[in-house]
């Protein structure tokens, strides 16, 4: 195809091939840094590399025939941005009385959640009380997902000796290991992250947050600690056994508590769990322990998925 010279194709060209001059320049400065006997080898490599862009640019030019792909992508992105901005500007302001106008269900939740569940944060009241069964299913979905990953990726056992060796070899070369900068940052950030995650979990019925978001933050803190200080340090408090016990106990507790709640509620019995004064940290009946259980499951799942995909074992 003949190269067009309009503004659009020039922009595409600039975007695609902009730094070739920079590449050659950098290569020259790099090859100066190497001693003379390596230079010939590097030059051969450089020549090989110079032929590669020519071959690689052929499909790229062919791709330029379908410039309308990119135009469509830009159009779709712009319309999505417009849609999101339009919706965001139409949202009612935080804390106004006009929020009730949308539907009957919204009105019911806004009027009754505080009284019936004791949760100041209506969202937590909805997902752990009105729709507690749904959240139970979600926690089990996470657990089943991590079980599947364990089945597929685990390299435990004697059969997988070679796989394990390969994984540790890979690990030694690509993972940060003993990185001083990462360690210094992690020493500051890990405690803050863990405390912040616990705050989000335990304050879930009072302020925005809850088990899922707090658990994700806890898991991120664990992953950061593991990355900076390695498996030996992490295994002092978090092993495969810890993972099994914590997630299974949290799920069992959730199921038992929610089952008791459903049973008593459906039979119009007193469940004996006092709601407490709304706004206190120890209030809202079951919501606080349920949030903690969900947070444990999510944190364990995040860490387990990470470590399974990285190494294949804990």
């Amino acid at each position: 195809m003949k190269k067009k010279n309009d503004a659009f194709s020039r922009l595409l060209d600039w975007l695609e091939n902009g730094d070739q001059a920079l590449d050659t320049e950098m290569e020259e400065s790099l090859s100066d840094a190497f001693p003379a006997e390596q230079k010939s080898k590097r030059k051969k490599k450089a020549e090989k590399r110079k032929t590669v862009p020519k071959n690689a640019s052929a499909p790229r030019r062919a791709y330029a025939d379908t410039w309308w792909y990119r135009a469509c992508a830009v159009l779709i992105c712009l319309s999505l941005i417009g849609l999101l901005l339009f919706t965001a500007l139409r949202l009612p302001e935080f804390g106004t009385a006009d929020t009730l106008i949308d539907s009957e269900l919204t009105e019911f939740y806004v009027k009754n959640t505080l009284e019936e569940t004791g949760a100041v944060n209506i969202v937590t009241g909805i997902i752990l009380d009105y729709r507690g069964f749904d959240t139970l299913g979600e926690s089990h979905v996470l657990f089943i997902a991590v079980c599947t990953v364990l089945l597929m990726l685990s390299v435990r056992g004697e059969k997988n000796e070679a796989l394990r060796l390969k994984a540790s070899e890979y690990e030694r070369h690509f993972e940060p290991g003993d990185d001083l900068i990462l360690r210094s940052a992690a020493r500051i950030l890990t405690p803050l992250t863990l405390v912040f995650g616990l705050y989000i979990i335990f304050n879930g019925h009072l302020s925005p947050g809850g088990g899922f978001s707090g658990g994700a933050i806890l898991g991120a803190g664990l992953i950061l600690y593991q990355n900076a200080f390695g498996y030996e340090k992490t295994e002092r408090f978090f092993t495969y056994k810890t993972f099994r016990w914590v997630s299974v106990c949290a799920l069992l507790f959730y199921s038992a508590a929610k089952g008791y709640h459903f049973f008593t509620g459906a039979n119009h019995m007193e469940n004996g769990i006092s709601a407490g004064a709304a706004g206190n940290i120890l209030s809202a009946g079951l919501l606080l322990p349920l949030n903690f259980a969900v947070g444990c499951v999510v944190a364990c799942t995040m860490y387990a998925l990470y470590t399974m995909f990285r190494k294949g074992e804990f």
Partner: peptide, 11 residues
């Protein structure tokens, strides 16, 4: 623009 224009990771 910089991320899209450069080809080498460090750039």
């Amino acid at each position: 623009f910089g991320v899209n224009r450069f080809r080498f990771a460090v750039n």
